[in-house]
Design a protein around this nucleic acid. Structure first.
Length: 473
RNA sequence: GUGGCCAUCGUUCAACGGUUAGGACUUCGGUUUGUGGUACCGAUAAUCAGGGUUCGAUUCCCUGUGGCCACCCCA
């Protein structure tokens, strides 16, 4: 949107079209059979639930990205980037059938080579795969890994809910001490706090070890089966597929029934109980606002012991999930690696940006050019390109409007950009080896030789800073 | 996946079934020579798509598409 186009380019540019069918390009040689193009595919429109993050919005994203990277660094996380596409089976094995993510939301397809693959719906599976594949278990423990990028879920879009969404992801492998659980929550809290988000609350729960979880599920099914008629249709199906998810069903009747159902917390093995207790003590120590939600289950199947979610609420008390995570001590082993405890969490960046706007948080501000280069005439135009790079080498950011011809138009741009200094290079100056340095605040200007140019510019910039921040004395 | 509301220039807001589809903001150009602001002038630019009803559809109906809201779920 902010891109300038030369007149020539503009003329050649296609007429902007929006949601409009365009002429099919002349058929070119293609190497594959492309099915007939549908009307829909001719629309110049991003796919449903997929969006462009335009330059206007980037400062918010930049702030989030920086915050995450900094936090990762400070907490000793190393960056890892894993592929967007993996074998479908990797996700099925880790997240498991019976979860919404696998059953309804995964983007899967077959490649040309016949591989069944899927766009990642989250990071942990891929990171865990990388951990095993590259023998990371030989690295000194714990191993802390950070990722950031898009993940995909085929869901019905709404505000803050997209089919392509961005996540920041943190994982710690190789340590089962609950202090790491606490540290991970601390990190999550630190990030959202630093981003200026208010009214943050964590919900935590423990669903126990794989074994105690199984025991609990059995008891829960036994209880619910006996009163199956009181459950909604959905939950009746869940009984066989994913019984624990009945716990966070929002249907009234289900909620009423499950309120009296056995609680996971009562089925915890001794170790898990101790683990959870320690975690809570650490959280108290850290003064992280949390509440225990015994019904919190999470939509992925690989969790053990600690699970948590991060919620933000607005003035009306409406709540938004910003992230979540938990411990998955069994995952690496289940995928075929050696038994490795792990904990991790993901943050939804789209929602964080949304919350930042809601909270009127200041976006990231990039350094702005304070100098403008104006040129007049062919020779000067040639030289101005060099001038730009000379200034840049001296650490002076310059803006320009090389495509514009008249000096008036260029100064107008300089003014609009709030430039403090404009360097004017005309035909005469280009021949003389001089340039005009114009102070845009006072309007005064002087002609200086090329050698003195940088100093002259710096002098004005410096005096402006002094004006803006007068020394106390 | 279910239900509801909505859809006009890049943005925002107009237009009793008959308008050259209008304004504001933005963008671009200009108000005579190599100097910014304001003001003024001008230009570019839209009825989401496909059907139907009608002499005539931006307007009414249907379908599709997309956005939003509530479920569902989560991030």
């Amino acid at each position: 949107m902010a891109q300038k186009q030369t007149n020539k380019a503009k003329k050649e540019a296609p007429k902007p079209v929006k949601k409009v069918a365009v002429q099919k390009a002349a058929p070119k040689k293609v190497s594959v059979d492309v099915p007939a193009v549908s009307e829909k595919e001719l629309l110049l429109q991003s796919l449903r639930g997929m969006r462009d993050i335009l330059p206007d919005e980037q400062p918010y994203w930049e702030r989030v990205r920086r915050s995450l990277s900094n936090a990762a660094q400070e907490y000793g996380f190393q960056r890892i980037d894993v592929p967007t596409v993996e074998y479908l089976h990797l996700f099925v094995r880790s997240i498991k059938e019976g979860t919404d993510i696998i059953d309804k939301e995964i983007y899967s397809f077959e490649t040309r080579g016949g591989d069944r693959v899927a766009l990642r719906p989250e990071f942990s599976a891929g990171v865990a795969r990388a951990y095993i594949q590259h023998g990371m278990s030989v690295l000194p423990k714990p191993i802390r890994l950070f990722s950031m990028g898009p993940v995909f879920r085929y869901d019905r879009p709404q505000e803050g809910r997209y089919r392509e969404l961005w996540q920041g992801n943190f994982e710690i492998f190789g340590e089962d001490d609950p202090i790491l659980d606490a540290q991970v929550l601390q990190l999550a809290y630190r990030v959202v706090q630093e981003l200026g988000l208010k009214n943050i609350e964590f919900q935590v729960n423990s669903i126990g070890s794989t074994e105690s979880r199984k025991r609990y599920e059995k008891a829960l099914v036994r209880f619910l089966e006996s009163q199956k008629q009181k459950l909604c249709q959905n939950c009746r199906e869940r009984l066989s597929t994913n019984p624990m998810r009945t716990l966070d069903c929002k249907e009234d009747k289900c909620a009423q029934l499950t309120a009296t159902a056995p609680q996971a917390i009562d089925f915890l093995d001794d170790e898990s109980r101790a683990h959870f207790k320690s975690l809570l003590e650490y959280l108290d120590e850290l003064e992280i606002p949390y509440s225990i939600n015994t019904r919190l289950v999470r939509g992925l199947d690989y969790y053990t012991r600690t699970v948590f979610e991060i919620w933000s609420s607005d003035r009306e008390g409406k709540k938004y999930a910003l992230g979540g995570g938990g411990r998955y001590d069994g995952l690496i082993r289940e995928l075929g690696g050696e038994s490795t405890p792990a904990i991790g969490f993901g943050l939804g960046l789209d929602r964080i940006v949304l919350e930042m706007k809601r909270n009127q948080v200041r976006p990231y501000e990039a350094a702005k050019p304070r100098v403008f280069i104006a040129q007049l005439g062919d020779l000067a135009k040639k030289k101005s390109l060099r001038l730009f790079s000379d200034l840049e080498k001296h650490g002076i950011l310059a803006a320009e409007s090389f495509g514009r011809g008249s000096l008036k138009a260029q100064l107008r741009v300089a003014n609009r950009l709030g430039s403090e200094v404009t360097v004017i290079l005309g035909q005469k100056e280009a021949l003389d080896g001089t340039a005009i340095v114009k102070d845009m605040v006072s309007g005064t200007q002087e002609t200086v030789t090329r050698e003195k140019l940088v100093d002259a510019v710096k002098k004005i910039l410096k005096s402006n800073v002094a004006l803006a921040h007068p020394k106390k004395s």
